[in-house]
Design a protein around this nucleic acid. Sequence first.
DNA 1: TTGTAAGCGTTATCAA
DNA 2: TTGATAACGCTTACAA
Lengths: 347, 347
Amino acid sequence: MAATMSDVAARAGVSVKTVSNFFNGYRYMRDETRERIEAAVADLDYRINRSARALRSGRSRMIALVIPELDHSYFAQLAQEVIDAADERGLTVIVETTGGRRDRELDAVTGVAGQVVDGAVYGPVALGPEDAALIDPAFPLVVIGERLVEELGDHVLIADREASRAAVRHLVEQGRRRIVLLGTMDLPEPAGATLPKRGVTLRRQGAEEALAEAGLELDPELAVEVPAWHRQEGADAIADLLDRGVEFDAVFGFNDALALGAQWELQRRGLVVPDDVAVVGIDDTEDGRFAQPPLTTISPGRRSIARLSVELLVRRIEGGVPEQGFSTVVMEHELVVRGSSVVPPRG
Amino acid sequence: MAATMSDVAARAGVSVKTVSNFFNGYRYMRDETRERIEAAVADLDYRINRSARALRSGRSRMIALVIPELDHSYFAQLAQEVIDAADERGLTVIVETTGGRRDRELDAVTGVAGQVVDGAVYGPVALGPEDAALIDPAFPLVVIGERLVEELGDHVLIADREASRAAVRHLVEQGRRRIVLLGTMDLPEPAGATLPKRGVTLRRQGAEEALAEAGLELDPELAVEVPAWHRQEGADAIADLLDRGVEFDAVFGFNDALALGAQWELQRRGLVVPDDVAVVGIDDTEDGRFAQPPLTTISPGRRSIARLSVELLVRRIEGGVPEQGFSTVVMEHELVVRGSSVVPPRG
DNA sequence: TTGTAAGCGTTATCAA
DNA sequence: TTGATAACGCTTACAA
């Protein structure tokens, strides 16, 4: 039978309250008391019962990470960073994957799952602004990556528009003129409402701005919608363009996976990257670094995003709803130029 | 304030015990009672308190998945499958990453983390047979991928030796003679003890057997140890061989990441895969499918591994330690031949 | 600086 | 088929 706190207390010759204080880092304790408790804990191989603690205190010391899927380089890397950051603060992470489905995204924070954690790092992709009302504003949430709605909690994101502009500007500087935008999506927006733009919309905007700066206009045929943001969809989209004889000299994938899928299909068809077609992505995944040629991309500072998200979440859990409203943090990003977009000078 | 079970009971005009029965699928209940409870639950938006349930019942309905790291295609895919399989059974998954460090692998099942879950799908890579004694045999465990020790719990693994033999045999059939084995490791084994072989040792053995079948012998220079099993280490190892002028016509990476790193470095140096050097891996990750050329690999049936592991774990949690001892299940594997190992016939 | 006692919301026992 | 009541192991007022 596992030892309880009162077993420890009895053995150490103190009260349970003192043992509890010990485990909660209570400062005012005689060294001798502390040592006696430490010894008793070691003797009995005592470990605190987290269920009892959670029941009594109302805090489970667990947080959720809600993402579309784990089997995706960007999210897997992000999850690892979140887990590490949480671990440093003594928090345990439950990874909830939603498949990008609205009902599961809602369920993660309102249903059974949300019941067991103190808060969540929340990366919804399918929610619309109208869903904000369905989420309890008292539930601590840090939203990453999209600014769907203002009122859910703190936000951590990259400047999608500027990042996208930098990517396309880079392609233009390389002399590219017919640039495929892979991942664009025209969301139906309720008439009359001025909604916060989704990240994907901002990426499209930034790209068009960069084109405009260069006196170019986006050929609608080059703005390609995809059903999901995996390599497969990137490959399929490019295959379709090539089959239809659409001409282009560059591809900007709205994430690395799409860009890598595009590059893969181009090479499969015997085209040379970057000579025939330049390719750029966003995310700076390891997959991109180990592509051949390595993928030019926008590095979003994933590590910082993860750490900051956890930090904000902890603050929120401990501090409650901030009086001055939620904060939005826009992370630095960086264009990382690699072989997929720059033709090496001829020797 | 969140509603409790007695709120529901009061509203439904029944006792708490009856509500509890309802939530635990107790069969003997009048339809009318059931309906009244359902209505009360809906009215109050009641959700069961998992901490209280866990405290009282001793079951948290959470399981851990213990793996070296998430930021690695094989484990990310595995984690997704485990989460899905657990979800179907109403279980929540906590992902513990250990960085492949022995202390953290032990801690995951003996320390604080192990305290909150009912059991674990356990993928240790750094434990030695001598560590078995440190792990409580009463803690439900399903070990995947390695058969370090017999007594920890049920095992789910692939036939490392046969898989490896199939991979090398394939290379030999393609006419390859100087095959680099990437990932081999000579473990110091206590003298005199006949220990269960580690997967990595078995992979080495299988490879040597395939060579022997073809009348070949392994050149020790081609058996390359690596510090970790990522693409970077695969690339570094190949770079080193090439720099030292070692000749070879094939690389067998003990996982896809090593093989892909090797392929990347080969291509970076201007060598052609598979014409100059053929490459084969193990894992059948998506990374391999989207390499250029796509990677020949051994598919381990990851989905089956995940599902079976969860199933065995549930059985173990519910049934306790089986009388007839733990079971070991060896999964089917399959050689998936792709472009990285077969030179296409000239047109 | 430490102790006493109540109670968090379930489930288990046993009775009805 | 349902109910009353006692735990589960901890934290938290409040007291000393």
